[in-house]
Write a protein that binds this DNA or RNA. Structure first.
Length: 829
RNA sequence: GCCCGGAUGGCGGAACUGGUAGACGCAAGGGACUUAAAAUCCCUCGGCCGCAAGGCUGUGCGAGUUCGAUUCUCGCUCCGGGCACCA
């Protein structure tokens, strides 16, 4: 045998099969109502230049799922595309004086090649790039439809501004006070912007969380918290000696008798109203200005000390008639609820602190069991349960009952109602950037804000632009783009120069993959209906709220607009962990980046894939370990060598097992079927590729040992052949090139691509002898080799007869014997 | 502060529904082959005691339930993530 023949030439093998798959379009799919469909999708990448290890891991996991489902007979759609709009293209354009489009498309070409080198089984005919007008034009249509239904609107409000990115961010895109992309701290800014009414779907988005058993509980919890539903009441307080009423939202209507003052947001209109023309006016205006500035300079995560100022106004508690002073307080948020709060210091810690600071009364009205709280001795608010006291006719009620009773009374009397409030805010989608989807709107001095007529879509992003160093969008000053005619009056008008948040593109791309060539409509219903929803979605947990919430929202909107018939986009979600090196996330600044290209050159794609699956289960972070990669490479080399060494025998074997199996045959045959069972279970239950791979390693270890030169009785060639076939087939989803090659080397004419997953025979997997553990008082004292299925009595007998066990029992009386069939016997003395 | 995760050899990680802790791989040590090296193969490998047979101990810490706990309960410690004045 020549060493040449045995060499594992991964470069040649991988190149051969890459071409084979691409040229034959092996992974192209079409709807087939007769077959079960399976949609597996990985979060598409931003074309930043080159793929990184995180992509490798993400896409390898998806590829294994895709190939595995195909082998199970499913009609598998597995598409890939490019999240191609975004800031980096613009930054690169400014820096290198290229055009964002050119930069983006060059990156796409390069990265597509990288993905193909990994052997990922995509249907490339479905590839899309979101910066293509044929893609984003439909977003402009969606926007117009949403505008018609009141789901898109424009308002002037305080937004999150990122100075570095020179743009506004949605609330979801502010992570711990900083920009999700560049980490710059965001600052508040007043400006006009377009919003999508995600709050109209708050309840459905929340309820949907209970309909997603295939999602990690952690992600659902984060989404529930983000939506932040609170149930309570809205109560109206008449402002003393004035026309206005002050409406508050509270989750604790039961404490209304304990309200001793009111706090409102500094921006609340009533603050300016009440102080107008009084001697307080300047002082109050200063306070408002100061607190807003302070909020801007707050360290992320820091709480400002509570501060407030008396506005000079009072309002009347409708339940008690008491006159409550109205304070402007820095901790009250204008954006939440009504921007005003009834303050109950005895039962709310914030109000308590505020009351202490400004000498306001504390009146407990919910008494906890076995205690009698008094306002002047309390050191903290009591926020827990209790029974109402000093609350008029409601005294004596349990707090929960009181919530309903008091709200009900307010409703009868016409000064309140039960109310649900969400933390979720509408999605601000205006971006002051160039490289994005133009918002199809025209501003006319005469007619106001006008939608671009549908038949004029798309509003194409102009390409004749030049960047200066300011970082500002060139669209804002591009006269040829801005200047247009008003669709209503035909007069001079200006185009909207803001573009859409790029999260819009990723909110529906999974649907467009089902019909990427649809020309006359955004989605071709028969295709979308057949393929959707995505059965398995895979990506990083960093999108737990952002992309995943937006996509859920968009799916519901598109459903209500008649484009889709599903409620939820992703039935199952796998959030894979990060790839780390030396205990830290890979980053240029840390100098711990591993380049996939170098690895593939050195070991081949199969080894890189194998290691990234083997080193950790998918949800967990994966520590990249160079020596571990070597180990994966050695394993593939061993399999390759074995097949090549036995090539001729393997080709001659017809697969018919001998009628009588020898000891070695039985050992190997049993292991084969145990492995089929184990690998199938591991993938089906929880994508535990790491343990699936170790199972295959065990099978190969058995195979190699039984065929080692020093082995006494070698297995029959037919059993060996079955073992090799099993290894190659089970490993194919993870290590496709090598397995395809070895399959062919074994003499199979039909490629492994659509081979059926091996069948598991429970009979063959049965052990004919098992190790029974004998314990004395719970400690292992002996082991028995017995055939499985022995009756309990027999097992007890055998256990008690064991010499070593006898020694441990000694003279002590046996009190009890516990038998777990086929597992252990525990003798209690 | 609140809400989730997690903690197992030198390392990555296994362990069905409470039933042999450490599968599989890496590293390390020893050996074989080789003029030598690489590659490959074999052996050892949680800790302590012991020549050995074997014993004791061991899954972050402390209790508990159980014949039996990495697994269940309670209380802590540390690490990671999310939210953070949301009324």
């Amino acid at each position: 045998m020549s060493t040449h023949q045995a060499r594992y030439d991964f470069t040649a093998i991988e190149e051969k099969w890459r071409h084979h798959w691409l040229e034959n379009k092996t992974w192209r799919v079409a709807p087939d109502p007769a077959r079960k469909k399976y949609y597996v999708l990985e979060m598409f990448p931003y074309p930043s230049g080159r793929i990184h290890m995180g992509h490798v891991r993400n896409y390898t996991i998806g590829d294994v799922v895709a190939r595995y489902r195909r082998m199970q007979g499913d009609n598998v759609i597995h598409p890939m595309g490019w999240d191609a709009f975004g800031m980096p293209a613009e930054n690169a354009a400014i820096k290198n004086s290229t055009h964002p489009a050119q930069w983006t498309y060059e990156n796409i070409d390069y990265m597509r090649g990288q993905l193909q080198r990994l052997g990922l089984s995509y249907d490339w005919d479905r590839e899309l790039a979101t910066c293509d007008p044929d893609y984003y034009r439909w977003e402009q249509l969606f926007f117009l439809k949403m505008l018609e239904k009141g789901l898109a609107y424009r308002k002037m409000t305080t937004v999150n501004w990122c100075q570095t990115c020179q743009t506004v961010l949605a609330n979801e895109q502010v992570i711990a006070g900083s920009c999700w992309r560049c980490d710059q701290e965001v600052t508040p800014r007043r400006m006009h912007g377009w919003f999508l009414k995600i709050t109209a779907y708050a309840e459905e988005l929340l309820a949907g969380c209970d309909q997603l058993p295939g999602w990690p509980e952690k992600v659902l919890t984060m989404q529930r918290n983000w939506i932040g539903k609170s149930t309570g009441a809205e109560l109206e307080f008449q402002v003393a000696e004035r026309e206005e009423k002050l409406t508050v939202f509270t989750t604790r209507p039961d404490t209304v008798f304990g309200a001793t003052f009111m706090s409102v947001a500094p921006e609340h209109p009533l603050v300016a109203e009440l102080s107008r023309g009084t001697e307080r006016e300047t002082k109050i205006r200063d306070f408002v200005k100061r607190t807003q500035a302070a909020r801007r300079h707050l360290q992320t995560g820091e709480e400002a000390p509570k501060e407030g100022i008396f506005t000079g106004g009072y309002c009347i508690n409708p339940f008690t008639g008491a006159k409550l002073p109205i304070y402007a307080a820095n901790f009250v948020l204008m954006e939440y609820g009504t921007g005003a709060v009834m303050a109950v210091p005895a039962h709310d810690q914030r109000d308590f602190e505020f009351a202490c600071q400004y000498g306001l009364p504390v009146v407990p009205v919910v008494q906890p069991e076995g205690e009698k709280l008094a306002g002047d001795t309390m050191t903290a608010a009591h926020e827990g349960p209790g029974v109402l006291a000093d609350s008029g006719e409601f005294s004596g009620l349990d707090w929960e009952a009181a919530k309903t009773a008091i709200t009900g009374r307010a409703e009868e009397q016409g000064f309140g109602k039960s109310q649900v409030t969400y933390r979720l805010r509408d999605w601000g989608i205006s971006r002051q950037r160039y490289w994005g989807t133009p918002i199809p709107i025209i501003h006319c001095d005469q007619c106001g804000v006008q939608p671009v007529p549908e038949n004029e879509l798309p509003v194409v992003l102009p390409t004749d632009i030049s960047f200066d160093q300011s970082g500002k969008s060139p669209l804002h000053t591009l006269e040829s783009f801005i200047s247009t005619a008003c669709p209503a009056c035909g007069g001079d008008a200006r185009r909207e120069t803001d573009t859409m948040d790029t999260f819009i593109e990723s909110s529906w791309y999974f649907a467009r993959y089902t019909c990427p060539d649809s020309k006359d409509e955004p989605l071709h219903r028969p295709a979308a209906d057949y393929w959707l929803p995505v059965d398995q979605y895979i990506g990083g947990v960093e999108h737990a709220i952002l992309h995943l919430l937006y996509s859920r929202f968009f799916t519901k909107v598109l459903r209500d607009l008649g484009y889709l018939n599903i409620d939820e986009p992703f039935s199952n979600l796998l959030t894979q962990g990060m790839v780390i090196k030396d205990g830290a996330k890979m980053s240029k600044s840390k100098g711990n980046v591993v380049d996939p290209n170098e690895l593939i050159n050195k070991y081949g794609a199969d080894t890189v894939r194998l290691f990234s699956l083997f080193a950790a289960p998918p949800e967990r972070d994966l520590e990249w370990n160079h020596q571990g990669v070597e180990g994966a490479f050695r394993f593939l080399g061993r399999i390759h060598r074995f097949v090549m060494e036995h090539r001729e025998t393997l080709r001659r074997t017809d697969g018919e097992l001998p009628a009588e199996l020898s000891q070695a045959d039985r050992t190997l045959h049993r292991k084969i079927h145990q492995t089929i069972r184990k690998v199938g279970q591991d993938i089906d239950n929880s994508f535990q590729f790491n343990t699936a791979i170790s199972a295959v390693m065990e099978l190969s270890n058995t195979l190699f040992a039984l065929n080692a030169p020093e082995a006494e009785a070698k297995p029959d060639p037919a059993v060996n052949c079955l073992a090799v076939q099993t290894i190659v087939t089970l490993l194919f989803p993870m290590v496709p090139h090598l397995c395809a090659e070895l399959w062919e080397e074994m003499g199979h004419a039909k490629p492994l691509d659509n081979q059926d997953w091996p069948r598991y025979d429970p009979e063959a997997a049965k052990e004919d002898e098992i190790t029974m553990v004998v314990q004395v008082k719970g400690k292992v004292r002996g082991r028995l080799q017995v055939p499985p299925g022995l009756p309990e009595e027999k097992l007890k007998e055998l256990a008690l007869a064991d010499d070593r066990v006898k020694g441990f029992i000694g003279q002590a009386p046996v009190r009890k014997i516990i038998v777990v069939p086929d597992k252990l016997v525990n003798i209690v003395i």
